[in-house]
């Protein structure tokens, strides 16, 4: 099996260009690639479009920031696709001030849009959002008498994902609910960088247990920062 380059978090962050669209895995910072996120904050490419289910937490009162919240606070995004920003006051502030465009996408639709992007589909039909603001500007298609929204695929220049364990070929295994969006994001970007907690030799992961196939992964980073 062909091994993938193992790079530093800084090298990973260096692959993101100004203006790129990036996907970042995680759910409220659980299962996010925290080592790479810190490097992206330090190298600080700007004008990015983010696709992520949330922007983790940023509480103005306590000053506590988690996960992707560090990149929002660093003002690196011009646009954010997310399903929930309720626990990040800075994202809400930037949105209300017109500094960052936020497009709210229902969480299940976001997952399917990314899946469609990675699976070569022209979009998906979902009943979610029919009769709501989410419907605005979208094609409504009726199948067997039921209305569905046509949701178009999402892809990215770079996906930053996180796995519990990876082998040097890029086969990945996730833990608990930390799998979340990492699995679909691994399929939907031109460049996929997987941060892994445990890096093992090829052959050490049972092929039956692989959740993300190595073919989706371009670079591997060994996790250093495991807190949020």
């Amino acid at each position: 099996m062909i091994e993938k380059p193992i790079i530093t978090a800084a090298e990973a962050a260096g692959k993101i260009k100004e203006g790129d669209t990036i996907m970042i895995g995680g759910f409220m910072a659980s299962g996010s690639p925290h080592t790479v996120i810190q490097a992206v904050k330090e190298i600080a490419p700007k004008g990015l479009t983010l696709i992520s289910t949330d922007t983790a937490a940023h509480d103005f009162k306590s000053g506590r920031i988690t996960g992707i919240g560090h990149l929002v606070a660093n003002k690196q995004f011009k646009k954010i696709f997310a399903s929930h920003i309720g626990l990040n006051q800075e994202t809400q502030r930037q949105m209300n001030a017109g500094e960052t465009e936020v497009e709210l996408v229902p969480q299940g639709s976001l997952a399917e849009k990314i899946r469609a992007g990675g699976a070569g589909l022209g979009g998906i039909l979902t009943p979610t959002g029919v009769g709501t603001e989410v419907q605005e500007g979208k094609q409504v298609i009726t199948v067997d008498g039921k209305a569905y929204l046509l949701e178009l695929p999402l892809t990215a220049d770079v996906a930053l994902i996180k796995a519990k364990k990876g082998d040097k070929a890029g086969n990945l295994v996730y833990a608990g609910t930390a799998c979340n969006f990492n699995l679909v994001m691994a399929t939907a970007a031109k460049l996929v960088i997987a941060e892994v907690e445990e890096l093992v030799e090829v052959g050490e992961i049972d092929p039956n247990e692989v959740q993300t196939a190595s073919i989706f992964v371009d670079f591997i980073v060994k996790a250093e920062k495991l807190d949020m």
Binding site: S83, Q92, P106, P127, T128, V130
Partner: peptide, 13 residues
């Protein structure tokens, strides 16, 4: 404006 999270999918499904 916290966002709908998974609520829209849950309610429709």
């Amino acid at each position: 404006v916290p966002g709908m999270g998974g609520a829209m999918d849950l309610v429709s499904g």
